[in-house]
Simulated scan of single mutants.
Amino acid sequence: MSSKPDASTKILGFKYQEMVALKECFEAKDGTKIYLECLGDVSDRKTSTEVKHSIKDDKKLIDTHIDFWKTLSNIITEYDTFRFYDKFILHTTAEIKAGSIFEKWKELNKTDKKKNILAITSNDTIKSYYNNVKAFDKKELENLLEKFEIKDNQESAKEYYKKILLNHPAIKNIIREPNREQFLCSLLGYISRELIVSETFVWEIDIDSFRNNFQSYVNQYQIEDLNFPISNATADLSSKENFHFVNILEHIQYERKIGTSMNNYLKASESQIKMIKARASLCENLDNYDEDIKDDVLELKVSHLDQLTDKCNTKEKSRRFFDDSISQISSKTTIEGVRNIRSYYPKGRLLHNIEIKAIDINLKLEDESK
């Protein structure tokens, strides 16, 4: 009976490795491959990651911790293969012990790292690994240690599954919450399958193939685009003094645009709030949309500024700039994940940019940016 928990924890360690590999697949560049149990626990032939999992919450990475010494020794043993790697990572759920040689590892230079690890007192557990490291060329050891990162205190398997994978943007932004766990399990099954069907017994994940399969899984759970939530908000002109964009319109003597502008601004703001409440994953898309409007209008502004002269009526030119800006962005009724966007939304988000002072529609000869 006592051996079963030990076997289970070892299997859990392998499953944890698969989960780390899956996250790498989410973030890998097109055309690459992710290897498991080859060139390190997880590798893309540029970065090699050793994945160490412990079920103990208080596990500490001490000077003579076998996970570090075995990892370093293995790299040295296969150094001809690893020589041109950019990075080596020890990904561990253990926490670096205060006062150990690993404390402030990121801040140490390669020479100090070498001195610290060679100065420790070896023991029977790490003796063979330590001797292998000590016998290695010291200059090459420094170069290796310069590339060696320690990611300590990483989430345990259960937390990694819940916090990192289920909440990864690759899943969270496209799969409804009730379906995310089932979708994730499909992807983890795909990772295991690639070893089972391998004719060479090399466990590799071709990222292009992974993305094709990912999309086929997504199609089963795809979230339909959100139908744009219409707002019927209307402006209370008695509160117009509270709005910066109203003050600007008054300054350029465009009072007749104030009522319509306030309506567009309030409707767009209410619709945005409704979209975020309905689907929080749209936040980034909506922010990008506002940013695109700002960029378009600021680019248009440059051409209007070029036409200014000392004899210009800048208020009249500012009114034309405002009209041209409204005209240019009115057709921007496409947001990823949203359908049937109403024409008031881009106009209202332009006014939002003016309200937060990201855009100034009051043209001045000395104006060079906003």
Rank of each mutant, 00 (worst) to 15 (best):
M1R: 08
S3M: 07
S3V: 12
S8L: 14
I11F: 07
I11M: 14
I11D: 10
F14I: 11
Y16V: 01
Y16R: 01
M19W: 00
K29D: 15
D30M: 09
T32P: 07
K33D: 14
K33C: 14
C38T: 12
G40Q: 09
D41P: 10
T47A: 13
T49Q: 07
S54E: 05
D58H: 10
I62Q: 04
W69R: 01
W69F: 04
K70V: 02
N74M: 05
E78V: 00
T81C: 01
Y85R: 05
D86A: 02
T93G: 08
A98E: 06
G99S: 02
I101T: 01
E103T: 03
W105S: 01
K106V: 03
K110L: 07
K110S: 14
T111D: 15
T111M: 03
L118S: 04
I120V: 06
T125W: 00
I126Q: 07
K127N: 13
K127S: 13
Y130I: 03
A135M: 03
D137A: 12
K139A: 11
L141D: 14
E142A: 13
N143V: 08
E146H: 14
F148Q: 06
E149K: 10
E149Q: 11
E149Y: 13
K162F: 06
I171L: 13
N173E: 15
I174W: 04
I175W: 05
I175K: 08
L188C: 04
G189M: 08
G189S: 15
Y190D: 14
Y190F: 15
I191N: 09
I191M: 15
S198I: 09
E199M: 06
E199K: 12
V202A: 04
E204L: 14
D206H: 14
R211E: 15
N213E: 15
Q222N: 04
E224G: 09
D225L: 02
D225G: 07
L226Q: 08
N227Y: 04
F228G: 05
A235Y: 00
S239D: 06
E241I: 02
V246T: 09
I248C: 03
L249P: 06
R256D: 15
R256F: 14
K257C: 13
I258G: 10
T260I: 02
T260R: 06
K267Y: 09
A268C: 04
S269W: 04
I276A: 05
I276C: 03
A280S: 12
L282E: 09
L282F: 05
N288S: 12
E291F: 09
E291N: 13
I293V: 11
D295V: 09
E299M: 12
V302W: 06
N313F: 01
T314E: 12
E316T: 10
E316N: 08
R319Y: 05
R319I: 13
D323V: 12
D324F: 07
S325F: 03
S325M: 13
I326H: 05
Q328T: 12
I329F: 00
S330C: 07
S331I: 06
T333Y: 00
V338L: 10
I341Q: 08
Y344N: 10
G348Y: 02
N353R: 15
N353I: 11
K357L: 11
A358S: 15
D360G: 05
D360R: 10
D360M: 07
E368S: 11
S369N: 11
